[in-house]
């Protein structure tokens, strides 16, 4: 049973502040993904939880125990590194059993646990090999098996799939999710890949410039982004934005169209996902610029009132560059953002 609490954690490197006052509580057995672009502080936060980095201020609690002053080995964690960090001088068996030997477990217990976790990761046949004789994907499996063999309360993963090729990554993603769900551990998983985040997480914590911008379920983050950054970061292609001017009484003028919106006198930004647009008789006038057939869909990049605008349309449609399309946004999927605070407005 291990709930992780991160309370007011901040980290500065000299005059540069990598993390500002991070507060996050991760439930027991929850799978939380820290998602953000490189340099947003997600790896630093993970390393602070692991004990490989010291927070400038703030507290970290794991399983009801304050751990921020403890070395990594006393925190009940196991970690999977981006470059796997499989020990080159030890066999796969000894790599997986390394932590168990450090715990001075009896030989037969070490053997039992190594064989079980190796089975889980499908690397039983590699136990006698050395790291140099393994492929990247196999090393990845060894690194995960080594962490799982510890039977930790918390497993921390730092971009574990980013060094694998696309096909292998997809395969490992599903496998890792299954294995972790069975192991009943609490997991923090750092990635910059939104597909990984969406597909694996119970909860995504989107980070930007050393702050958590939104922490919510994948669907919530996708449908109701709390800030413009999240809307632009999550989703491929990202959300479309257009300036909106208030017409009074909750009516808004967007690129010549009048739409219903929130009751506020300030100027707002109108936002809609590319797949929430339909061809209709009334709607936004969009001039098609680039048409990219993606098989299942057609990605049309257009110009609406001088702004870049993307629409995902049915692939049966025949559109040529220069055509004018009338795109109607699905009204329950429209979101509004305050351009000053960049936060969502209900």
């Amino acid at each position: 049973m291990a709930e992780i609490q991160i309370k007011g954690v901040a980290k500065s490197f000299g005059s540069y502040t990598a993390l500002h006052d991070i507060n996050l509580t991760i439930q027991d057995q929850e799978f939380v993904v820290l998602l953000g672009a490189s340099g947003c502080g997600k790896t630093t936060l993970l390393r602070i939880v692991a004990g490989l980095e010291t927070a400038t201020t703030g507290e970290v609690w794991i399983g009801g125990k304050r751990v921020d002053h403890l070395p990594p080995k006393d925190r009940g964690i196991a970690m999977v590194f981006q470059n796997y960090a499989v020990f080159p001088h030890l066999t796969v068996f000894e790599n997986i059993g390394f932590g168990l030997r450090m715990k001075k477990l009896p030989n037969d217990e070490v053997k039992r646990r190594v064989e079980r976790t190796a089975g889980l990761m499908h690397i039983e046949q590699l136990l006698g090999r050395y790291s140099g004789e393994l492929s990247g994907g196999q090393r990845q499996r060894v690194a995960v098996a080594r962490a799982l063999a510890m039977e930790p309360d918390v497993i921390l993963m730092d971009e574990p799939l980013s060094n694998l090729d696309a096909l292998l990554r997809m395969e490992m993603r599903a496998e890792l999710k299954g294995v972790l769900a069975e192991s009943n551990t609490t997991a923090i998983y750092v990635t910059h890949d939104q597909v990984e985040a969406m597909s694996m997480a119970d909860r995504i914590s989107v980070m930007h410039q050393g702050r958590i911008v939104q922490a919510a379920s994948p669907i919530e983050v996708y449908r109701n982004p709390a800030a413009e950054f999240v809307a632009g970061f999550i989703g491929n292609p990202p959300m479309n934005f257009l300036p909106a001017t208030p017409q009074g009484g909750g009516r808004w003028a967007v690129a010549g169209q009048v739409l219903d919106g929130p009751q506020t006198p300030k100027a707002l930004k109108f936002a809609i996902r590319p797949e929430d647009l339909r061809l209709a008789d009334h709607g936004l006038q969009a001039v098609a610029k680039v048409i990219e057939p993606l098989g299942a869909h057609l990605l049309v990049t257009c110009d609406v009132n001088g702004a870049l605008f993307r629409a995902v349309l049915d692939s049966d449609l025949s559109v040529k560059p220069g055509d004018t399309l009338t795109l109607a946004p699905q009204s329950d999927r429209i979101r509004w953002f305050d351009p000053e605070t960049t936060r969502a407005v209900a």
Partner: peptide, 26 residues
Amino acid sequence: PIELEEAAWTLGCTRFTAFTKVVLPL
């Protein structure tokens, strides 16, 4: 790579045992 040592730390090593068990043999 420093990650080898860090991995050892997370697997129950102190700075010293990580050195003797991982760095020194290498």
